[in-house]
Structures are given as structure tokens and as C-alpha cells.
Simulated assay, not measured.
Amino acid sequence: MKSIAFTLVNIAYLPVAKTLADSFILHNPDIPFYICLFDDQKNIKDPVFLDYNIYDKNKLDLKEYDSMRERYSNLSMACALKPYFAEQLIKDSSAESVIYLDADTKVFDKLDTITGIFDTEESSIILTGHNYKVVKDSREVIFNAFTRKYGIFNAGFFAVKNTKAGNEFLNWWKRMLFEYCVQDEKKGILYDQTWLDLATLYFNKELHILDHLGYNVAFWNLKEREISRNGNRYFINDSIPLVFYHFARYNYYNSEFVDGYSQRLVSYPILQEIFERYRIELKENLFENYIKETKTTIKDIPQKIKNRFRFYLEILTDKL
């Protein structure tokens, strides 16, 4: 199956996208990887980024793009344009499937499970849940409430097959994000992510929920996914290859935390090793030239932000 993969950033986050691209290409050299920009690539100044497949906003319908650009923040744009670029990449490359990864991700193994699913099943859409196992502890209710509030799927990864159902999914998601790719807690909407809950109803027969624990490992599922190393390879729960780690809420200038705030890496020695290497790679890819110092702790978070993310923060600390 001819697959392609992409991530989506603005020029400021090119160092992060390059770090992902390098790891993806290393482990999946047979899958073309694109760095999509919601900026204009002619504004890229450092030639180190020009060796990659760059795909910018000018490939899209600029009338739709301009409408969103007037209404949306950079974060909203980075979320809203995912299905737009996915659709356009499929059209331009005649690919049989497309894979998306958030830029703050690093790949450690082949993503051949995806092509295997598309080759052998009727599925046209692949999503990953935030968690798959019941973890019974004192925070169980709070944690499940957080998942209900912010979505059962993580939008940092998806894969779509170039079929009628796959294209219908992308078109449906585009319509939702064109109108309403924002955070609106009263309506239960978190940018592109919470819309995906509806895919379980609208695309039930075409949706494959990928429960491979090596995909989309992140701070929110570490309780069910213990990371270990055997030689040069990393594994989940001793036997499942780590395919990619999602460095969500990673803070380059506060890199001793798993989540950017409170969970210290010293509690996860193998993960600390992964984080230290990731920081080196970001630095080598000019991160400090593009994103300036921002340190954040629980004490630094304004009360209105604490209120907004209360479920999440209660999981992390007892001292709100």
C-alpha cells in the first residue's frame, strides 16, 4: 500500500517538526514524510529545513484558509487544518492512505501496524484512545471525568485510507473544524479532538480503534504503559515495541517534568533517558533560535487557567 505521512506546524515550530521527521524517516524510509505549514514556505530562513518535503498553505483553498486565519489562533489553525492537508496530500500524491502525527512526537519503530490494518480489514479510519485499561486508584473518577471532558481519542495521531468512507470522514471533520475549532468548555468542545468522539457513531463500521500500547504513549497513559529498554529498543510492558512517544505539554526549558508542570521524570528513569535525548535533538535542530525561554510551574499558572484545567491539575497535584 502506498502511504504518506505528515505533520502540521507554523514556521516557529519547524525545529520540532524536523526532529519528528528525522525519527520517522529513520524507521519508515519507505513512507514519504511531509512537513505541512500553515505559513508560507518562502519565509523559511534556515536552509536546514529545506531538505524536507515542505507543503505550505498555498496548496489549500485560500478562501477557506483566509476565513479561518481571520477567526482562529495559531493553535486553532494547527488543529483545524489537519483534515484539509490530509485530503490535499492524498489528491496530489494519489496515496492509498495518509498518516498524521503531532509535531511533538518521536518515532522509535515502524508504523507497519497501520498498513497491515488497511491491507487486511475494511477499516478506513484509525484512531487511538487516550487509555485502554481501567486503573483503579484514588484518582480514578477524576481521571475518567477528564477523559470524558477532553475526548476519548487523542487527535495527535490519525490514519485515513483513500476510500469513499475515508474521504467522507475527512470532509465531515473539515466541516466541523471550519466552523468550530476552538475550546468551548460549555459546549464540550476541545478544538479538533472532542469531535472525534462522534466518529464511533457516524463511522462505526469504518473505524478501527488501535489498541496497540506502543502507539501514542504519553503522560496520560503511563500508568498502563511501563517503558523499558532492551539494547537499543524500547518496549511497553516488557514485550510491546514502543512505536512513538507523544511529548505533549513538553517544556524544553522545564524538561525535568513529564507533563511540563509537576510529574517529575526522576520517577520514570527510562523515560528520563528518552527525554534527555529528545532535548539534545531539539537543540541540534535550532530549537533555541525559534522558541525562547518559557518556564512554567504550578505556582506560575494563573487562577483562571487552573479553573479551566481543574480536572487535569487535580490529577497531578493536591495543591491547587
Rank of each mutant, 00 (worst) to 15 (best):
F24Y: 06
L26Y: 10
L26W: 02
H27Y: 15
H27A: 12
H27L: 11
N28I: 03
P29A: 12
D30E: 15
I31F: 10
F33W: 00
Y34V: 01
I35V: 13
C36S: 10
L37G: 10
D40N: 13
N43V: 00
K45H: 08
D46S: 12
P47E: 15
P47I: 10
V48Q: 12
F49W: 01
L50Y: 10
D51G: 15
Y55M: 02
D56Y: 07
K57T: 05
N58D: 13
K59I: 02
L60W: 03
E64T: 13
E64C: 12
Y65P: 05
S67G: 09
M68V: 00
M68S: 07
R69A: 14
E70W: 08
R71L: 15
R71S: 15
R71M: 14
Y72A: 01
S73D: 15
N74A: 12
L75F: 14
L75Y: 14
L75P: 06
S76F: 10
S76I: 01
A78S: 15
A78Y: 04
C79L: 08
L81T: 01
L81D: 07
P83Q: 09
A86T: 01
E87I: 08
E87F: 13
L89M: 08
L89G: 12
K91M: 05
S93Y: 11
S93M: 05
S94F: 07
A95F: 11
A95Q: 13
E96V: 02
S97W: 00
S97T: 07
S97Q: 02
S97P: 03
V98M: 04
V98D: 11
I99S: 06
I99E: 08
I99T: 05
Y100P: 02
L101K: 02
D102A: 05
A103F: 07
D104A: 10
T105A: 13
T105Y: 11
V107P: 03
D109P: 01
K110V: 09
L111V: 12
T113W: 10
I117A: 05
F118M: 03
D119M: 01
E121I: 00
E121M: 10
S123E: 05
S123G: 05
I125Q: 03
I126N: 06
I126G: 08
L127V: 03
L127G: 04
Y132D: 13
V134A: 13
V134W: 09
V135A: 02
V135N: 03
K136F: 15
K136T: 12
D137C: 07
D137L: 03
D137V: 04
S138D: 15
R139Q: 14
R139C: 14
E140M: 14
I142W: 10
F143Q: 09
F143C: 08
F143L: 07
N144K: 13
A145P: 04
A145F: 07
F146I: 00
F146A: 08
R148S: 15
R148K: 12
G151M: 08
F153C: 07
F153K: 04
N154W: 05
F157L: 02
A159I: 01
A159M: 01
V160F: 09
K161P: 05
N162S: 11
T163K: 06
K164T: 14
A165M: 11
G166C: 08
